[in-house]
Protein backbone atom coordinates (compact mmCIF):
# COMPACT_ATOMS: atom_id res chain seq x y z
CA UNK A 1 0.00 0.00 0.00
CA UNK A 2 1.25 3.47 -0.82
CA UNK A 3 1.81 5.76 2.15
CA UNK A 4 -1.16 7.89 3.16
CA UNK A 5 -0.58 11.48 2.14
CA UNK A 6 -2.37 14.73 2.72
CA UNK A 7 -0.48 16.86 0.20
CA UNK A 8 0.14 16.24 -3.46
CA UNK A 9 1.69 18.24 -6.31
CA UNK A 10 -0.70 19.25 -9.08
CA UNK A 11 1.71 17.70 -11.59
CA UNK A 12 1.31 14.34 -9.81
CA UNK A 13 -2.47 14.40 -10.27
CA UNK A 14 -2.17 14.63 -14.06
CA UNK A 15 -2.52 11.15 -15.62
CA UNK A 16 -4.29 9.71 -12.56
CA UNK A 17 -7.40 7.68 -13.42
CA UNK A 18 -10.83 8.99 -12.47
CA UNK A 19 -12.57 6.02 -10.84
CA UNK A 20 -16.26 5.62 -9.97
CA UNK A 21 -17.04 4.58 -6.39
CA UNK A 22 -20.33 2.91 -7.38
CA UNK A 23 -18.97 1.14 -10.46
CA UNK A 24 -15.28 0.42 -9.96
CA UNK A 25 -14.68 1.68 -13.50
CA UNK A 26 -12.00 4.09 -14.74
CA UNK A 27 -14.16 6.70 -16.43
CA UNK A 28 -11.39 9.06 -17.56
CA UNK A 29 -7.87 10.26 -16.90
CA UNK A 30 -6.85 13.63 -15.46
CA UNK A 31 -5.44 15.85 -18.22
CA UNK A 32 -4.85 19.08 -16.33
CA UNK A 33 -5.57 20.70 -12.99
CA UNK A 34 -7.59 23.92 -13.28
CA UNK A 35 -7.45 26.38 -10.41
CA UNK A 36 -8.02 30.03 -9.76
CA UNK A 37 -4.60 31.38 -8.84
CA UNK A 38 -6.08 34.64 -7.55
CA UNK A 39 -8.43 32.89 -5.12
CA UNK A 40 -6.17 29.81 -4.55
CA UNK A 41 -9.25 27.77 -5.32
CA UNK A 42 -9.32 24.48 -7.17
CA UNK A 43 -11.91 24.63 -9.94
CA UNK A 44 -11.61 21.13 -11.31
CA UNK A 45 -9.92 19.02 -13.94
CA UNK A 46 -9.88 18.69 -17.69
CA UNK A 47 -9.94 15.07 -18.82
CA UNK A 48 -8.42 12.64 -21.27
CA UNK A 49 -9.83 9.34 -22.47
CA UNK A 50 -8.34 6.24 -20.93
CA UNK A 51 -6.22 3.81 -22.90
CA UNK A 52 -3.94 3.91 -25.88
CA UNK A 53 -6.17 6.16 -27.95
CA UNK A 54 -6.25 8.77 -25.23
CA UNK A 55 -7.27 12.23 -26.32
CA UNK A 56 -9.08 15.17 -24.82
CA UNK A 57 -12.57 14.35 -23.60
CA UNK A 58 -15.38 16.85 -24.13
CA UNK A 59 -16.24 16.47 -20.47
CA UNK A 60 -14.54 17.93 -17.42
CA UNK A 61 -14.69 17.33 -13.70
CA UNK A 62 -15.74 20.15 -11.35
CA UNK A 63 -14.00 19.91 -7.97
CA UNK A 64 -17.41 19.77 -6.21
CA UNK A 65 -17.96 16.34 -7.81
CA UNK A 66 -14.72 14.86 -6.46
CA UNK A 67 -15.08 12.61 -3.42
CA UNK A 68 -11.38 11.91 -2.93
CA UNK A 69 -7.91 12.57 -4.34
CA UNK A 70 -5.31 9.96 -3.49
CA UNK A 71 -1.90 9.04 -4.80
CA UNK A 72 -3.46 6.42 -7.10
CA UNK A 73 -6.80 7.83 -8.27
CA UNK A 74 -9.26 10.69 -8.29
CA UNK A 75 -12.58 9.36 -7.03
CA UNK A 76 -16.10 10.34 -8.12
CA UNK A 77 -19.45 8.81 -7.23
CA UNK A 78 -20.40 7.82 -10.79
CA UNK A 79 -19.96 8.83 -14.43
CA UNK A 80 -22.66 11.51 -14.18
CA UNK A 81 -20.10 13.55 -12.20
CA UNK A 82 -18.25 14.22 -15.46
CA UNK A 83 -19.86 17.36 -16.91
CA UNK A 84 -20.00 18.08 -20.63
CA UNK A 85 -17.99 21.19 -21.49
CA UNK A 86 -21.16 22.91 -22.76
CA UNK A 87 -22.61 22.78 -19.26
CA UNK A 88 -19.39 23.24 -17.27
CA UNK A 89 -18.44 26.53 -15.61
CA UNK A 90 -16.48 28.72 -18.05
CA UNK A 91 -13.54 28.81 -15.65
CA UNK A 92 -13.26 25.05 -16.15
CA UNK A 93 -14.09 24.61 -19.84
CA UNK A 94 -12.04 27.68 -20.90
CA UNK A 95 -9.57 28.53 -18.12
CA UNK A 96 -7.88 31.94 -18.25
CA UNK A 97 -4.33 31.33 -19.46
CA UNK A 98 -3.11 34.79 -18.37
CA UNK A 99 -3.60 33.78 -14.75
CA UNK A 100 -1.44 30.67 -14.86
CA UNK A 101 0.86 30.88 -11.87
CA UNK A 102 3.53 28.52 -13.26
CA UNK A 103 6.61 30.53 -14.24
CA UNK A 104 5.76 33.48 -11.98
CA UNK A 105 8.42 34.85 -9.64
CA UNK A 106 7.38 34.67 -6.01
CA UNK A 107 8.21 37.93 -4.25
CA UNK A 108 7.62 38.56 -0.57
CA UNK A 109 6.34 41.93 0.64
CA UNK A 110 9.81 42.40 2.17
CA UNK A 111 11.20 42.43 -1.39
CA UNK A 112 12.89 39.01 -1.36
CA UNK A 113 12.51 36.80 -4.44
CA UNK A 114 11.63 33.25 -3.29
CA UNK A 115 12.13 31.55 -6.66
CA UNK A 116 10.02 30.73 -9.72
CA UNK A 117 6.81 28.71 -9.41
CA UNK A 118 7.17 25.20 -10.85
CA UNK A 119 4.24 23.44 -9.19
CA UNK A 120 1.14 23.91 -7.07
CA UNK A 121 0.64 22.04 -3.78
CA UNK A 122 -2.84 20.65 -3.13
CA UNK A 123 -4.25 19.35 0.12
CA UNK A 124 -6.25 16.18 -0.56
CA UNK A 125 -9.21 14.91 1.44
CA UNK A 126 -12.89 15.76 1.42
CA UNK A 127 -12.37 19.42 0.44
CA UNK A 128 -9.24 19.60 -1.72
CA UNK A 129 -7.65 23.06 -1.90
CA UNK A 130 -4.48 24.81 -3.02
CA UNK A 131 -2.27 25.31 0.04
CA UNK A 132 1.03 26.39 -1.48
CA UNK A 133 3.45 26.71 -4.35
CA UNK A 134 6.70 24.96 -5.15
CA UNK A 135 9.41 27.24 -6.47
CA UNK A 136 12.78 26.59 -8.04
CA UNK A 137 15.68 28.52 -6.57
CA UNK A 138 19.44 28.44 -7.02
CA UNK A 139 19.62 26.47 -3.75
CA UNK A 140 16.98 23.88 -4.66
CA UNK A 141 13.21 23.75 -4.51
CA UNK A 142 11.18 25.60 -1.90
CA UNK A 143 7.58 25.13 -0.74
CA UNK A 144 5.76 28.38 0.03
CA UNK A 145 2.38 28.51 1.79
CA UNK A 146 -0.50 30.21 -0.03
CA UNK A 147 -2.93 32.52 1.70
CA UNK A 148 -5.77 34.90 0.91
CA UNK A 149 -3.25 37.73 1.26
CA UNK A 150 -1.39 36.63 -1.89
CA UNK A 151 -1.65 38.80 -5.02
CA UNK A 152 -0.94 37.81 -8.61
CA UNK A 153 -0.04 39.97 -11.59
CA UNK A 154 0.68 37.50 -14.37
CA UNK A 155 4.45 37.62 -13.85
CA UNK A 156 4.77 37.98 -10.09
CA UNK A 157 3.12 36.31 -7.12
CA UNK A 158 3.44 38.52 -4.05
CA UNK A 159 3.18 36.82 -0.65
CA UNK A 160 3.23 38.24 2.87
CA UNK A 161 6.73 38.55 4.36
CA UNK A 162 5.61 36.15 7.11
CA UNK A 163 5.49 33.37 4.50
CA UNK A 164 9.32 33.34 4.38
CA UNK A 165 9.38 31.90 7.90
CA UNK A 166 7.10 28.99 6.95
CA UNK A 167 8.78 27.76 3.75
CA UNK A 168 9.92 24.13 3.65
CA UNK A 169 12.11 22.01 1.37
CA UNK A 170 9.83 18.96 1.17
CA UNK A 171 6.20 17.99 1.67
CA UNK A 172 6.84 16.36 5.07
CA UNK A 173 5.76 18.92 7.61
CA UNK A 174 4.62 21.43 5.00
CA UNK A 175 0.94 20.93 5.93
CA UNK A 176 1.69 21.92 9.53
CA UNK A 177 3.71 24.91 8.27
CA UNK A 178 0.71 26.06 6.20
CA UNK A 179 -1.56 25.82 9.25
CA UNK A 180 0.93 27.79 11.39
CA UNK A 181 1.31 30.42 8.67
CA UNK A 182 -2.46 30.89 8.40
CA UNK A 183 -2.79 31.07 12.20
CA UNK A 184 -0.10 33.78 12.21
CA UNK A 185 -1.94 35.80 9.54
CA UNK A 186 -5.22 35.45 11.45
CA UNK A 187 -3.50 36.72 14.58
CA UNK A 188 -2.19 39.74 12.68
CA UNK A 189 -5.55 40.65 11.14
Amino acid sequence: MNPRIDLIRASEIAKLPVVTVTGGEDAAEIRDVVYDAEQHRLIGFTLNKRGWLSGRLKTSLPIEMVTGIGSDAVMVLDESCLVHDDGAPQALSAPKSDHDVIGNDVVSTSGAVLGTVVDVIIETGEHPEVVGYETETDDGNLLIPASAQTSLSGSNLVVPAAAEEFTRNDLAGFGAAVDSFRDRLKGES
Partner: peptide, 13 residues
Protein backbone atom coordinates in the same frame (compact mmCIF):
# COMPACT_ATOMS: atom_id res chain seq x y z
CA UNK B 1 -7.06 -10.54 -9.20
CA UNK B 2 -8.77 -7.20 -9.01
CA UNK B 3 -7.03 -4.04 -7.90
CA UNK B 4 -8.21 -2.83 -4.46
CA UNK B 5 -8.83 0.91 -4.27
CA UNK B 6 -10.23 2.79 -1.31
CA UNK B 7 -12.74 5.62 -1.66
CA UNK B 8 -10.04 8.20 -0.92
CA UNK B 9 -8.02 7.15 -4.00
CA UNK B 10 -5.33 4.92 -2.48
CA UNK B 11 -4.50 1.42 -3.72
CA UNK B 12 -4.20 -1.53 -1.31
CA UNK B 13 -2.65 -4.16 -3.59
Amino acid sequence: SSRLLDSAGFEHG
